[in-house]
Design a protein around this nucleic acid. Structure first.
Lengths: 225, 225
DNA sequence: ACCTGAACACCGTTCAAGT
DNA sequence: ACCTGAACACCGTTCAAGT
């Protein structure tokens, strides 16, 4: 849209990788992962079934491109922050919120660690950790841990929300878990902990995890040579 | 096998939920997630296609039961440890190794947070954190963070290993990532960090992440009242 | 070059019919 | 009660034929 292109695209109407990815995101958002079929995509674009194979290798690439379409803008938006710790929080919350709005992104990111979107997250996290003064093995360890946590947690929260849209089954699950904890120990503190479990807010709990991480990374060298 | 059962199973030959789950695990291990079809399961058991629907609701329940069949014994084996920190490490490594041997378990656990296997992990982790003297909101925050990290990381390592069985594409990915990092900053320390990334051992890096977590949980109260 | 849509080789799940 | 296997309603992907 900004630079002139040698292959001037005459028809705004024509099929393109970009339009296909757009349609894919729309379908995933409205119909969910199970609703994404190539038939749905081609119907949405009112074209033939085989048409998209001229622009995309297969369904897997389509999913990876859709995830990149969601995550890319989030990373770009949070890039200009100031203090490293705050930047990491902003970054993590940005990804969390994006996955919360597009639950399928969570599944996709943790299933394919080699896809472009995950590499972008790695790069962004690595940059902030470096600004915290971490380097060498400690940097790759901390980066790996943080990326794993962010993707794993966000995917699970999103899956949990997706699976039990009524808060009822979710509540039942947490209560069952609390019961099992309470049974492990007569200590009244355990009862309190179990109760806390059932009353938490996902987003706050996610951020608390990020803070545990930052504390662990900052508090003394973790033994690296 | 140990206690007499009211419903005495005369025929060892007969179909049962247990035998179906066994066959499912075997197929997942040898043919992968994509290789698990109900046709493969029924062929393996030399029975009709509809037979398993008398013992299991659908394919999703089959996958959850298979995951529980792998994770359950791991948790039972590591239950009797002594020092809480060591117990958490043993627990985490046990899950990591199990997912490394059965990559499909990683995908399954992070996709379905409400399944029995995940609840068992939660319970085990919660017990050890409690023994560390953590309670209340701090316990549910720390538990959530640790479970998310363990499942997310293990799933991603397993997916990475599954996707690039030849170390070549994996190496290429890490080198690309290292390049991007190196470009972010002229600092020679960044170069070292990038190099460290390409030479790591998955299992060691995973354990380093667990240690970061334990450090973050232990170092001062994370602000919880 | 790009698109069409019928055809292919599969799926998970159901259900009348058997034992 | 449990099992069978044909049938149903889908899939992703391919490919000759069109423009």
């Amino acid at each position: 849209m900004n630079t002139p292109d040698p292959r001037s695209p005459r028809r705004t109407d024509a099929l393109s990788r970009e339009r296909i990815v757009e349609a894919t995101i729309e379908i995933l958002d409205t119909a969910g992962e199970n609703g994404l079929t190539l038939r749905a995509v081609t119907a949405h674009l009112s074209t033939g079934r085989g048409a998209i194979y001229h622009h995309v290798i297969n369904k897997d690439e389509l999913l990876a491109a859709a995830a990149e379409g969601v995550i890319g803008p989030v990373l770009a938006r949070t890039a200009g922050d100031t203090e490293p710790r705050a930047a990491i929080r902003t970054l993590a919350l940005g990804i969390f919120d994006a996955i919360d709005r597009h639950p399928w992104v969570g599944t996709q990111l943790s299933r394919e660690p080699l896809q472009p979107a995950v590499r972008q997250i790695w790069t962004a996290v690595g940059a902030q950790l470096h600004r915290l003064g971490i380097s060498g093995t400690a940097l790759s360890d901390a980066g790996s841990a943080l990326v794993s946590y962010v993707l794993g947690a966000a995917a699970q929260y999103a899956a949990g929300a997706r699976r039990s849209p009524d808060a009822a089954t979710r509540q039942r699950y947490l209560e069952h878990l609390a019961e099992q904890w309470a049974r492990l120990d007569p200590d009244p503190l355990v009862q309190t902990s179990a109760a806390a479990l059932a009353e938490h807010d996902d987003r706050e709990q996610f951020l608390a995890g990020v803070d545990i991480f930052i504390a662990g990374v900052t508090s003394g060298d973790s033994g690296g040579d």
